Amino acid sequence: MTDAAELEVPPPPKKTKLPLILGFVLLLAGAGGGFTLVKIGIIGGKTIEAAGDSTETSDIPPESEDVAFVPLDPMVITLSSGSDRQLLRFTAQLDVNPAAVEEIEKIKPRIIDILNGYLRALEVEDIEAPAALIKIRSQMLHRVRIVAGENRVNDLLVMEFVLN
């Protein structure tokens, strides 16, 4: 008889959903309150009206600054991957300091040579990667700055980059 009394275990109490509901209500109240505080400008800095009147400087140079571009000759590079041969058409311009335009024009053959050597070393898989143009562009800009001088070339602008 004592064995039968030990086997009868009372059923577990039914779980309440009150903490879940309370947590959800507090979540909604916090989100609504945070949105309201940001919207009226108490926290989060500027309001939408003040953001339009901002006088902060941006990374983009103003149009009033002198900017000079030196176009590079178009290049056609043969890329081989296995038995397939593909052509890469590449055209670019250099964003240079206006005082350095003549010096860059004089060394333009060296710049084209260094870019041609780099592009020929690439494989088709390197070019077809999703972020390939960003990586290739930064590598080419680094090489151009080595040849031309660090303070002469600001940027390399890729005008055409087509793989046929």
Results as ranks from 00 to 15, higher is better:
138 S>T: 10
76 V>H: 06
117 G>R: 07
136 I>N: 01
61 P>T: 12
102 E>M: 05
117 G>A: 15
162 V>M: 06
150 E>V: 04
23 G>L: 13
72 L>Q: 08
31 A>I: 08
42 I>M: 03
74 P>I: 07
27 L>G: 08
134 I>M: 10
35 F>N: 00
37 L>C: 04
110 R>V: 09
15 K>H: 12
44 G>K: 00
23 G>T: 14
28 L>S: 04
123 E>A: 13
135 K>H: 12
116 N>C: 11
25 V>H: 08
40 I>K: 00
141 L>V: 08
92 A>Y: 06
129 A>Q: 09
140 M>N: 09
101 V>N: 02
119 L>M: 03
42 I>K: 03
19 P>H: 04
116 N>T: 09
108 K>Q: 11
161 F>I: 09
20 L>G: 15
65 E>S: 03
118 Y>I: 11
162 V>S: 04
61 P>I: 08
111 I>M: 07
145 R>W: 00
49 E>W: 01
21 I>Y: 13
49 E>Q: 06
71 P>Y: 03
80 S>E: 13
77 I>L: 12
68 A>M: 10
124 V>F: 01
46 K>P: 10
13 P>E: 05
140 M>D: 10
107 I>R: 14
6 E>H: 08
22 L>D: 02
157 L>C: 06
18 L>F: 11
80 S>D: 07
87 L>I: 15
133 L>V: 07
140 M>G: 02
117 G>T: 07
38 V>M: 01
81 S>R: 14
12 P>W: 02
150 E>Q: 06
81 S>D: 12
115 L>S: 12
139 Q>Y: 09
16 T>E: 02
106 K>C: 08
63 E>C: 07
69 F>T: 00
54 S>Q: 07
50 A>V: 04
150 E>W: 00
94 L>K: 06
125 E>Y: 09
76 V>C: 09
20 L>A: 13
161 F>D: 11
85 R>D: 14
12 P>K: 05
103 E>W: 01
121 A>F: 15
163 L>W: 02
21 I>S: 10
104 I>F: 03
20 L>S: 11
79 L>A: 10
